[in-house]
């Protein structure tokens, strides 16, 4: 499905802890040659006891040069992740999460991970503050760290949804702060028939180069 749309970026997701090992085991056999950008989404929940193992598993993948996307609220011991450097991409969170939602909260996380980069989730930022002021503050303050953007509408139940007219208008307000060619990762679950429409909607909301980077 992704080949048909000539997409150039992909995020390989292991949001559940038990998905991580199978994903990593399959990496060498995946046909990813069409993608110029690949990232891995780390599990969104694990215990402090599991953290060193998960960290070691992901550290073993750094040789690939693929960013590892992390939810900051999952981290128990920031020291364990510091040496990932810019290949650790901290994601701003949705309104359910206790931290990592605002520029102010992200600042304290980047103090602990000074070289980490940013996975900017524009849907989360809009859910936290639909005026997009918080999105603006995050991008203005941490735009230099921007590695990739998660794109979707995050609805009131914090679920990913297709972009609405309102969300497109909101995203346009900060589009100028997202430089090309930052990869845009589309997080909405889509059927094949919805894919092209959604890509066009993303293109009307955010800067998308021809042939680039929605996955």
């Amino acid at each position: 499905m992704m080949r048909a749309h000539r997409l150039q970026a992909v995020e390989l997701s292991a949001l559940r802890e038990n998905e991580l090992v199978p994903l990593l085991n399959d990496l060498d056999s995946l046909d990813l040659h069409q993608f110029s950008y690949v990232s891995i989404h780390a599990p969104s929940e694990f215990s402090a006891a599991q953290e060193p193992t998960i960290r070691d598993l992901l550290k073993g993948q750094l040789r690939r040069g693929w960013p590892i996307v992390m939810h900051p609220d999952t981290i128990h011991d920031f020291e364990l992740w510091r040496d990932f450097g810019p290949l650790l991409a901290i994601e701003n969170m949705d309104k359910r999460k206790p931290t990592g939602r605002t520029a102010h909260q992200l600042a304290s996380i980047f103090e602990k991970l000074p070289n980490a980069s940013l996975c900017f989730d524009i849907g989360h930022a809009r859910q936290v503050d639909p005026t997009m002021t918080e999105a603006y503050l995050i991008l203005r303050r941490f735009g230099g760290r921007l590695r990739q953007v998660h794109v979707s509408e995050v609805n009131t139940r914090s679920k990913h949804d297709v972009l609405s007219y309102s969300s497109i208008l909101a995203f346009q307000e900060v589009a100028d702060l997202i430089p090309l060619p930052v990869p845009l990762i589309l997080e909405t679950p889509l059927t094949e028939s919805q894919m092209q429409i959604e890509i066009e909607k993303v293109g009307s909301a955010l800067p998308v180069e021809q042939n680039v980077a929605v996955a």
Binding site: K95, V128, D129, P130, T131, T133
Partner: peptide
């Protein structure tokens, strides 16, 4: 203050 912040920002906006 999540809801409070969102609403005051909306009004100011």
């Amino acid at each position: 203050d999540d809801a409070y912040r969102r609403v005051t920002r909306h009004i100011l906006s």
